[in-house]
Design a protein around this nucleic acid. Sequence first.
RNA 1: GGAGCGGUGGCUGAGUGGUCGAAAGCGCCGGUUUGCUAAAUCGGUGAACCGGGAAACUGGUUCCGCAGGUUCGAAUCCUGUCCGCUCCGCCA
Length: 425
Amino acid sequence: MLDRKFILQNIELVADNCERRGVSCDVSQISQLETQRLEKLQLAQELNRQANEISKQIPKASDAEERNALIEKGRQLRQEKDDAQKTCDELDQTILEIQTLIPNLTHADAPTGGEDNAKELGFGKTAKPGFDFQPLDHLQLGEKHDLFDFEGGARVAGAGFYFLRNAAVRLDLALQQFAINFLCERGFTPVATPDVALTEVLKGTGFNPRGPETQIYSIENTELNLVATAEITLGGMMSGQTVSASELPIKVCGLSHCFRTEAGAAGRASKGLYRVHQFTKVEMFAFTLPDQSAAIHEEMRSLECELFDALEIPYRVVDTASGDLGGPAYRKYDLEAWMPGRGEGGQWGEVTSTSNCTDYQARRLNVRYKIDGEKGTHFLHTLNGTAVATGRAMIAILENHQRADGTISVPQVLRPFVGSDTIGG
RNA sequence: GGAGCGGUGGCUGAGUGGUCGAAAGCGCCGGUUUGCUAAAUCGGUGAACCGGGAAACUGGUUCCGCAGGUUCGAAUCCUGUCCGCUCCGCCA
C-alpha cells in the first residue's frame, strides 16, 4: 500500500499510475474522506483531552455534589468522544479499502502496456537446442520414462494435481538442493517456511484471499490459507517488527510448497506441469534499506541468470510491462525459459520472476527499520525473486535436454543430487 | 485434549483503580574524571498519530500480548482470544 500522505499530495500522479497499470480506482475520493477523517480525529482527541481533565479533578472534588456533577460531565464527554471516534474509524476503514486497491508506483524504465509489451533485456549463455529429430514435449517424455501421474493426481485431489514419479522426484529434490546450496553460498539464510499463513499476512503481502479471481485456497472456518508462494510467509515473518538499519539487508531463501487455484486461467496454455495447483519453490527474499533495493533487485536477477545458466537452460530476461506487474511490484524482471514442447515449435515460458516492492509491502505489514542514534523509524524495502520453481524448471530441463533416442541428459550441476547422468537409457 | 502459571519499555523486572509512559537495574547516548582502557560519577534515553514551528523543538491523543466489557477514570477488575512455560494424556 502507498503512503496516505503521499497519495494526497500526488493525486494526479497516483491516478495516472493506476491507469498505466490498468487498475481502476477512485483516487480523488480519498482526499475528501481524509479531510473528514482528520476533523473527526481532532474532535475525538480534543473531547478525550477534556474528559481526561475532568477525570483528574474528580478525586479532588470537595463534596459529593461537585463530584457527581463532574462525573456526569465526564460521562457526557466520553460519549461524545466515542461517537466521533466511531465515525473516524469508519472513515479510516473506507479509505483503507481504496488505498489497498492502489498499486505501487512504477519504475520509470519499466515498459508501459500489458503482457506483450515486456521488454527483452537479454539472453542466457545456453543456446536454444537445434534438434535434428522431432522433439517431444515434457508430457510425452514423462510418459516414456514414467515421470508423472496426472490421472492419479486428479483422482486424489482433482485436476491440476499430480504425482511425480521416479526420476522426476529426484530431479525435483535435486533442483531444491542445488538452489538452496547455491544461495547459501551467496549469503542467503535458508528457511523452510509454513505452507499456510493468516489472512492478514496475505493481505499485507498484497494477496487477496477473497473474491472470484482469487488465486488462494483458504481453509474453511479459519483465518488460514495455503500459501501461493513463500514470499507470503517470508514477508510476514517480520511483520510488525522494527529492525536496526545496521542489520540490513536481510537476505533469506525460503523453501515452500505453493498452492494456486488458477481461477480464471481456464483456456490459457496449461498443458501438463506448466500451470498446476501445487508446486515446490525456492524463493529469495530480502529486507533492505531504501537505497539498497535497486542494487539487490539487480543482484537477484543476476542470481537467477546464474542459476539457469548452471542448469544449462536457454532463457531470455524481460522487463515486465506496467499492466502486468501486479499490485506490490515497482519493477519486475522475468526469466522465460525456452520450452521446445510449448505451442508450435516451442515458446518462451516464465520460470522465475523477481520484484522490487519498495516500501509497498512493508507499509502494510508494518516492517520498519531504525537508524541507531536517530529518532523515529522508517519502512524498509522488500524484494522477492524465484530461485527455482521445480515444476517449470523441470519442463525446461526435460524438453531442452532430450536426445534423439528419447533419453534426457541431466544438467551437470544436478548429477550429484539426481544420482545419474541420464534419465532413461 | 486436561491442569496450573505467565505475557509490562532494547533486555531483566516492580506495579496500590486516579499523581503511571510506567520504579529499579542492565544496556545505550552525552558530560565530568582518568595517560589509554577499565572503573567512578552526573545527565539523557520508546513508538505511532494529530496540531504549531523554517528548524532545534513543542502542545495533544493513543500504546503495558490482542479484542471487548465494567467505570467519570483500567497496566491494575471482568469476559473472550492468541502466544509462551510447566505437568499429564495422545501422537508423526
